Amino acid sequence: MTPFTASIVEVVRSIPEGKLMTYGAVAAAAGQPRAARQVVRVLHSMGESRGLPWHRVMNAGRRISLPGDGGELQLALLAAEGTEPGLDGCFDESRFMRADQARA
């Protein structure tokens, strides 16, 4: 595991229940602000196997990016934590985004 990958894992593990971060904010917190796609790749390849709360990471529009069953699973996991999107499908930044996250 590269140091950057280890940083991504650490940042994602630190997202508390009921809070969210964007892929870009995770990348920035891990030291590479322009590496949101790398965050996606790491979560896809090791999110479940490492027990990461991958479902707490959103796209820049504060929406679920996964299509089909994956998106439905993510929505169900978030709902179980009391985190639900508004009618427009976006998660409310003031309620759910980690206060210390850089807008990315």
Rank of each mutant, 00 (worst) to 15 (best):
M1Y: 12
T2M: 06
P3A: 14
P3M: 05
P3I: 12
F4Y: 15
F4R: 14
T5G: 07
A6Q: 15
S7H: 13
S7F: 03
S7R: 12
S7N: 15
S7C: 08
I8E: 02
I8H: 10
I8F: 09
V9F: 06
V9A: 07
V9W: 03
V9N: 06
E10A: 15
E10P: 06
V11A: 11
R13I: 05
S14K: 05
I15M: 02
I15Y: 05
P16A: 05
P16T: 05
G18W: 00
G18K: 00
G18I: 00
L20Y: 02
M21I: 06
M21S: 02
G24T: 08
G24R: 05
G24C: 03
G24W: 05
G24I: 06
V26H: 11
A28D: 15
A29F: 09
A29L: 09
A30C: 11
G31C: 11
G31F: 13
G31K: 15
G31E: 11
G31R: 14
G31A: 10
Q32G: 03
A35P: 09
A35W: 12
A36L: 04
R37G: 14
V39T: 09
V39L: 09
V40N: 04
V42T: 14
L43W: 07
M46G: 12
M46N: 07
G47W: 00
E48G: 05
S49D: 07
S49Y: 06
R50F: 08
L52V: 12
L52H: 09
P53T: 04
P53A: 02
W54Y: 10
H55S: 01
H55L: 00
R56G: 05
R56V: 08
V57T: 06
V57F: 01
N59H: 06
A60R: 15
G61I: 02
G61V: 02
R62Y: 13
R62H: 13
R62F: 09
R63V: 03
R63C: 01
R63S: 01
I64H: 01
S65W: 09
S65Y: 08
S65F: 07
S65P: 04
S65T: 11
L66R: 13
L66S: 10
P67W: 01
P67V: 05
G68N: 09
G68D: 07
G68T: 06
G68K: 08
D69Y: 05
D69I: 10
G70K: 03
G71S: 02
G71I: 02
E72F: 04
L73V: 06
Q74C: 00
L75I: 03
A76D: 03
L77A: 00
L77H: 04
L77E: 00
A80Y: 04
A80H: 04
A80P: 01
A80L: 01
E81Q: 14
E81K: 12
E81T: 09
G82E: 04
G82R: 04
T83C: 05
T83V: 09
E84K: 13
E84A: 12
P85N: 03
L87C: 03
D88F: 12
D88V: 06
G89C: 03
G89W: 03
D92N: 14
D92R: 15
E93H: 11
S94L: 10
S94Q: 13
S94D: 12
R95W: 05
M97I: 14
D100L: 03
D100R: 07
Q101R: 10
Q101Y: 05
Q101A: 15
A102K: 15
A102I: 11
A102W: 09
A104H: 13
